[in-house]
């Protein structure tokens, strides 16, 4: 597998940062064999959800906390890791199916579902920290945090494969 590019970003916990970061990652992916929908829908929406979750829920918009974004791009796939300073969350427990009748009219709770529906793979795990100290927080689905801040960060890892390398 040939690596075509990598990108490491450290952004403040401010939602105004999301759109330009997403635009830059999508721009880089245009060099690979992703199709129009992957670049216009799957990647930008899933990235926006991951960054939004990190800023709003992981870091709780605390200006003293940071979000790390690591991008690895090959001819086969793009992998984006988004790390916050939150306590982490149980991805399965927090993912709600918005298509269930009882959830249709909810105003929140579609983010993790969309991320997982639009990406080939979504994982989360404890990371090494953003280098700015740890805080508390949890993913979408309040009350599902799994641990207190410990100096590590919470990482959400998104994988999207190019069309020729679809699973």
């Amino acid at each position: 597998m040939v690596a075509f590019g990598a990108l490491d970003l450290r952004i403040p916990s401010d939602v105004s940062q999301i759109e330009p970061v997403v635009a830059e990652i999508v721009r880089r992916c245009k060099a690979q064999a992703f199709d129009h929908r992957q670049l216009a829908l799957n990647l930008p929406v899933a990235l926006t959800e991951a960054l939004s979750n990190a800023i709003l829920r992981g870091n709780r918009e605390d200006a003293a906390k940071w979000v790390l974004v690591r991008v690895s791009l090959t001819e086969a796939e793009v992998i984006v890791e988004v790390e916050d300073e939150g306590a982490g969350f149980d991805l399965d427990a927090c993912t709600r199916d918005p298509s269930l009748p009882e959830n249709i009219e909810r105003e929140e709770g579609r983010g993790l579902f969309l991320m997982r529906a639009l990406m080939d793979r979504v994982e989360n795990y404890r990371g090494e920290g953003t280098g700015t100290g740890a805080g508390e927080g949890a993913g979408e689905g309040a009350g599902a945090g799994t641990s207190a801040g410990s100096g590590e960060g919470n990482v959400v890892r998104l994988t999207l494969r190019t069309k020729g390398h679809a699973a």
Binding site: E49, E107, E108, G111
Partner: peptide, 14 residues
């Protein structure tokens, strides 16, 4: 419109 995220969908529902 380009893309819409879950927060944008939530506002439309609201």
């Amino acid at each position: 419109t380009g893309y819409i995220d879950s927060a944008g969908l939530g506002v439309l529902v609201s």
